[in-house]
């Protein structure tokens, strides 16, 4: 129970411009955005809130929720080759998006295993990205997709590769006067792909994952891996890509031997920890096994 809920202040901007003005003026006062509230409310009522000033984004949904296939920004500028997902898009909206399902079914999978229906109806894409939970289900998918995040401030808008955006545990590259306004997914020509998303948790729903693994494998005409992405959650202080393994395996054809090689490389590359949800040993075994089986070609679904 919070000692005093009345200590918490809220500013509710009418649009993005007003929000960014406010953030610029009060950049050093510790105000934080309030999106769907799932994280923030649990923190406040668990007496571990990071702030007492909140910028309520509820009225910005018109501008910041939605999935735009042609990458159109709110200012009307087109960005071909990208899908733009507004930061206030809810997980339910991700799940139901035919556009995203066509581009990458992994997004729906990840959204579908993030909490129950109630959470999915409130939690937002942007909120999940900014809270940067090490085992956040959608985060490895954004990593695997080479997504970029769009950060807006009163004076500028910048796009940052999501990989660079993630910093220390639960910390990101966002500045105090910046608002995460969208995540941008590049659409590339990948004729043949094999995909996998697995969340390993203490039960089938409603638990934070022990580990999350997602993989996207392009295959060239000869059946060799091209543009392989292996991303993990819960295997380190933040979601991560197994870059060395990706490089090692690139250009090779799937086989049991290659799967074993992938597993061994991951043992060297990943350093998970023991915590109340699982053990380092178990996390590494599942990472090795799932990635090994994927690289060997046994698991994953075809997508084109």
């Amino acid at each position: 129970m919070p000692t005093n809920i009345s200590d918490h202040h809220v500013f509710t901007p009418r649009d993005v411009t007003e929000a960014l003005q406010f953030m610029a003026l009060h950049r050093d006062e510790g105000w934080r955005p309030l999106a769907g509230g799932s994280e923030v409310m649990a923190q406040i009522y668990g007496n571990r809130a990071a702030a007492t000033g909140w910028i309520n984004l509820a009225q910005l949904r018109d501008q910041l929720a939605g999935i735009h296939e042609d990458g159109t920004h709110e200012d009307g500028i087109h960005d071909d080759g990208w899908v733009r997902i507004g930061a206030l898009t809810t997980l339910t909206e991700l799940r139901r998006s035919a556009v995203l399902q066509a581009i990458c079914p992994l997004i729906r999978r990840a959204a579908a295993v993030t909490g129950g229906v109630q959470r999915q109806n409130r939690a937002t894409v942007g909120g999940r990205i900014v809270s940067a939970s090490p085992a956040g289900e959608t985060l490895p998918v954004w990593l695997a997709l080479d997504a970029e995040v769009e950060l807006s401030s009163r004076d500028a808008t910048r796009c940052v590769a999501y990989r660079q955006f993630l910093q220390e545990p639960r910390q990101t590259a966002i500045a105090p006067d910046e608002l995460l306004t969208a995540i941008m997914i590049p659409i590339r020509d990948r004729p043949r792909q094999r995909l996998l998303f697995r969340k390993v948790a203490s039960r089938a729903a409603g638990a934070i994952g022990k580990m999350v693994f997602t993989a996207i494998a392009g295959l060239d005409a000869a059946g060799h891996y091209r543009d392989l992405r292996l991303a993990f959650g819960g295997m380190g202080p933040r979601p991560l890509r197994a870059c060395e393994a990706e490089q090692l395996l690139e250009g090779h054809a799937p086989s049991d031997a290659l799967g074993a090689q992938a597993a061994d490389q991951l043992s060297a590359e990943l350093t998970p920890i023991d915590d109340l949800r699982s053990t380092a040993d178990y996390r590494l075994r599942t990472a090795r096994n799932l990635a090994g089986a994927f690289i060997a070609g046994h698991i994953g679904e075809q997508h084109s």
Binding site: R203, A204, R277
Partner: peptide, 16 residues
Amino acid sequence: MQNANLADYSIPTAMD
């Protein structure tokens, strides 16, 4: 008890 909440202490959900 370290996992004293209903997310980390896993009683079965309908999906389990």
